[in-house]
Design a binder for these strands. Structure first.
Length: 272
DNA sequence: ATGTGACCCTGGATGC
DNA sequence: TGCATCCAGGGTCACA
């Protein structure tokens, strides 16, 4: 469920409720995630400054470090009146009541446990997991020219290259397919052979695709931040993803192939 | 150095 | 109905 737009939606949902809140207690029910959660004792008594996003990571900044959170394939963050419950609510942060807001738990739930949730002392941006991440696609650090330069010498196809977080941050399997469709570029195109003009088209398509997905998610932030408010509301209109054998808006028939072990969807008629 | 596939884990959909 | 199989939005690692 979580790609960049979903992660951003989750971040927007929790950020206002976290800002300025003191962590009264941190509970780790299940610490065996992609990497061990470890002890969160050191954040008890500390006050969260903000929640921001880097690629698909959510960073909750404190004055001397940050919580680094990744939602993996099945993770969510939401608020609850209850402490984390079995089987899949692995971490709970009890937020102290303040003048305007009652005490409640920020819950991390992740059935597949591919995500992570851990404390990083010091600057999280220089943490090994974040250090090598490429430019944010929605920032000015990303453009067709920058993408083109990053792809020079690349022997892989453009689609898996777009999913390489060192080239551009946060583009996952769905949005890689969707962006290439919007750009009219075939996913098998050799990344290093993409012309500057087509790199422009791809970079532009990535930005437009992510923005409209965030806008679509943005309308359901409140629902999403609710305890049982899991998926369902992220019904974006996929143009190709998951639509094998269905027809493209151009009249062509959408194909499914596998690249680097992941499903890719495209239209052979309008993607050249 | 770079690219691909196996793997981590659970749950839902599908097929027999 | 019950069971087996496949597939899934991510990232890391061993190996070619």
């Amino acid at each position: 469920m979580p790609e960049l737009p979903e992660v951003e939606t989750v971040r927007r949902g929790i950020a206002p409720h976290l800002r300025g809140r003191t962590i009264a207690k941190a509970t780790v029910r299940e610490g065996r995630l992609r990497r061990p959660v470890g002890s969160l004792r050191q954040i008890e008594g500390k006050t969260a400054l903000r929640a921001r996003r880097r690629g698909k990571y959510i960073l909750v900044d404190f004055d001397d470090g940050a919580l680094i959170v990744h939602l993996g394939m099945s993770g969510t963050l939401y608020f609850s009146e209850k402490p984390p419950q079995p089987p899949h609510e692995h971490v709970g942060l009890l937020l102290k009541a303040d003048a305007r807001r009652g005490a409640r738990f920020l819950i991390y739930r992740d059935p597949r446990r591919f995500g992570c949730f851990f404390w990083c002392a010091g600057d999280p941006d220089s943490h090994p997991l974040l250090r090598e991440i490429g430019p944010e696609p929605l920032s000015r650090q990303f453009s067709g020219g920058i993408l083109h330069a990053a792809l020079v010498g690349r022997q892989s196809a453009i689609k898996p290259a777009l999913m390489d977080s060192r080239i551009v941050a946060g583009v996952g399997n769905i949005y890689a397919s969707e962006s290439l469709h919007l750009a009219g570029v075939r996913p098998q195109t050799l990344a290093g052979r993409l012309s500057p003009q087509r790199a422009d088209a791809v970079a532009d398509a990535v930005r437009r695709t992510l923005r409209s997905a965030i806008d679509a998610g943005g309308s359901t932030i409140r629902d999403y931040a609710r305890p049982q408010g899991d998926p369902g509301m992220f019904q974006m209109q996929w143009r190709v993803y998951g639509r094998e054998k269905l027809s493209c808006s151009c009249g062509g028939t959408i194909k499914r192939i596998v690249q680097a072990g992941r499903a890719t969807y495209y239209c052979p008629r309008c993607q050249t």
